[in-house]
Design a protein around this nucleic acid. Sequence first.
DNA 1: TATTGTTATACTCTATAACTATA
DNA 2: TATAGTTATAGAGTATAACAATA
Lengths: 182, 182
Amino acid sequence: MTDSQPDTGARTEGVQPLDPAQLGAYFVLMEAVSLLQHQVEQQLRAEGGISYVQFQLLARLAHAHGPLTMTELADGVVYSRSGLTYQAGLLEKADLITRDPSPDDDRATLVTITDHGRALVDGVLPGHVQVIRRLLFDTLTDDDLHHLGDIMTRVRDHMRAQPPRSAASRKRRTAPATPTAS
Amino acid sequence: MTDSQPDTGARTEGVQPLDPAQLGAYFVLMEAVSLLQHQVEQQLRAEGGISYVQFQLLARLAHAHGPLTMTELADGVVYSRSGLTYQAGLLEKADLITRDPSPDDDRATLVTITDHGRALVDGVLPGHVQVIRRLLFDTLTDDDLHHLGDIMTRVRDHMRAQPPRSAASRKRRTAPATPTAS
DNA sequence: TATTGTTATACTCTATAACTATA
DNA sequence: TATAGTTATAGAGTATAACAATA
């Protein structure tokens, strides 16, 4: 938080306020997911010694058919290149992944999950599933479930299709390079 | 991440795996909200110089009719007492809140939002609303909206009613586990 | 020139434990 | 004894900018 307040006055004139139902839905969504994230982090930390970000990276690698480049791996999980390098460094040190130069593109790094990494994902998954079933699915009907999946898929696709907001849009997803406008 | 892997073997035998629709809905939910959180943080930081947590605290105070104690303020927003003290310190330093001893209970601290704090919330809200409308509500029908709100309200209430999971349940969560009118 | 990835660095945030003071 | 809050401190994570190497 900066001491002086940045431009609060971004062309906000004439903005229609959300109706209470919309605002309420938004806040409840954020609150519920925040609680869920917290519990999920606890479970992953306790049973696997990893964060949710690390779990996502490992799960993505475990699900892929072969190695992924750093850029492919980052997509949607981490929002800065250096952030991914940091996480990859931790995962490599823990022998959960390996990094090797790509034969196709000498700039690229290929990331591969190790047997140890797969074992960790497999070991952690049942407990993970238990948590999300207990917290999320126990209160949902089949109809709720499908509606939720449908809604969030649409929302996600919509957000991914959006041009990176802050003007300078040339950079790809991994590095929005948003110059803290002020 | 620890070097040695903690107990992965929490009684996970016989756990029914989630079906693909459930797992998919879960992952999409987490991904979509993560993207949303990121965009929202950007907007708040750029236009108000505050984080989402700080925005929540200020919004809660602005919405309340009077001052709140630290404990009341923490509810659901922050998961450790020291975390709240830290955030309150920042907000106080920026003249967005004040902290005073409570006349009713000499152990308690009463937190009050300042005019500056209210102005900040008011100034930041239109842009905030723009962002969530553009990212979230533009793709949702009225039916989606109500279903989403309904679902997440149920999920939140369910999670708040859950007993603190981690075996050693001695410590009360920062949150008294009481519904928040929305 | 643009892209891939790493490094150095500074900063924000969170959480545990020890502590004070009051109920 | 239990609760409210603060402090000290340590650790995890993130982002920016500068950099090297390749396409």
